[in-house]
Nucleic acid binder design. Structure first.
Lengths: 206, 206
DNA sequence: CGGCACCTTGACACCAGTCAACCAAGGTGG
DNA sequence: CCACCTTGGTTGACTGGTGTCAAGGTGCCG
């Protein structure tokens, strides 16, 4: 699913290091090759809110205000990314490259829409379940196991992404664990009863 | 800001009519020329959730699952849209067309991110205020008055979009009206005290 | 062994969803 | 022309979920 080699050479990131920060020029599009990243936005008070997680094959958010990045991006674990300069998009020689790029952009839009639906459904339990299923589906697309989910991000990150407090998330996890629906551990998660989980999630198909 | 005339001829929609429905093939990208539209998604129970509002110059969501539309689109008032077949993207002769397209896509992503931040902030009042300011900014970009906002969509639509109930929205409007911050009417809205409203909104800059 | 993230658990107050009644405007038909 | 219904919005009383505050655990690393 990766874009061809027209993309300029890749870049390696250490865990916790920034790929870009809010305010940086937004003239480059990044595609993840390996590892995982998160994006965050700063609100008026200056505290950070996680806006997305990124897995191999995905395009990083290109949200911007007047050419400056709205969000920052941080590697959650060792990651490699490759760059596509926006000015080079028109010069892609490969005929298949442009449609592939559009496909990736629309996949990202689908994911954002799904997450939006997930957030708009108020209850915290289905919100978290929706996240788990979506995350599982993304891993499955990479050929990884869709039941045994590694979690490169912290609980705090997940809570922030889902717009709820750390405590609520903890309670939701406890509830689901007690019900035998999933096994929630700090660094990984196991989906034990997928049909039951799907019945709990708010939106439709993933 | 409109893409050049390479776009195939435009299409006129009557108020309430569908531009596309969930499940339709998603091989065409629509750009709004005039009027306003909304998109919606159906959840498992089959009831509709509003996912976005679209003004002239904006690209409609292209979210899809295996080439089929995830969302439906309905005209809120008489609207004209133009089509861009995805297979034609590579054949755009105009050198400026492709960067312009990328710009519009990233603007859409910015808007989605902003809305996501707005939804993740839990309280209902800042959520609505954030919507008002964002909507105002979008109108301003079109050269229209940013204080006197026409509302082509119903209250129910707004509530659905913001992930809250009609009653909550009504109460929030009443509160803001009593405070003299804005004037909320069924078909239009006036922002009376923008600085105060900006102080209430959750995310940062719009 | 100590210190520090990171997560868990409990008590409590409050905001928002639910249910229900009420109100205003517009359309329709007799 | 008016009674009737429908649609869209408002307001009230009540309950439950979730944020907040606070204390207690657990694991990791020096």
């Amino acid at each position: 699913m990766l874009l061809p080699e027209i993309l300029s050479c890749s870049e390696v990131l250490k865990p916790g290091s920034h790929l870009f920060r809010p305010g940086d020029p937004a003239d480059v599009q990044y595609h993840v090759r390996s590892g995982a990243l998160k994006t965050y936005a700063l609100n008026a008070q200056g505290d950070e809110r996680v806006t997305g997680f990124y897995l191999p094959g995905e395009v990083l958010s290109n949200s911007q205000i007047e050419g400056r990045r709205r969000e920052g991006a941080i590697a959650l674990e060792t990651a490699t990314v490759c760059r596509l300069r926006l000015q080079d998009v028109g010069r892609l020689q490969d005929v298949a490259a442009l449609p592939m790029l559009m496909t990736k952009l629309s996949q990202r839009e689908t994911l954002l829409t799904e997450h939006q639906l997930n957030l708009a459904g108020t209850a915290s339990l289905p919100r978290f379940v929706g996240f788990c299923l979506q995350y599982s589906a993304r891993l499955a697309k990479l050929g990884r196991c869709s039941q045994h989910l590694p979690l490169p991000m912290s609980r705090t990150d997940i809570a922030s992404y889902l717009g709820m407090t750390l405590e609520s998330l903890s309670r939701v996890c406890a509830k689901l664990s007690k019900g035998g629906l999933l096994l929630a551990q700090p660094k990984e998660m196991q989906l034990l009863d997928r049909p039951a989980l799907e019945a709990l999630a708010v939106p439709g198909t993933y």
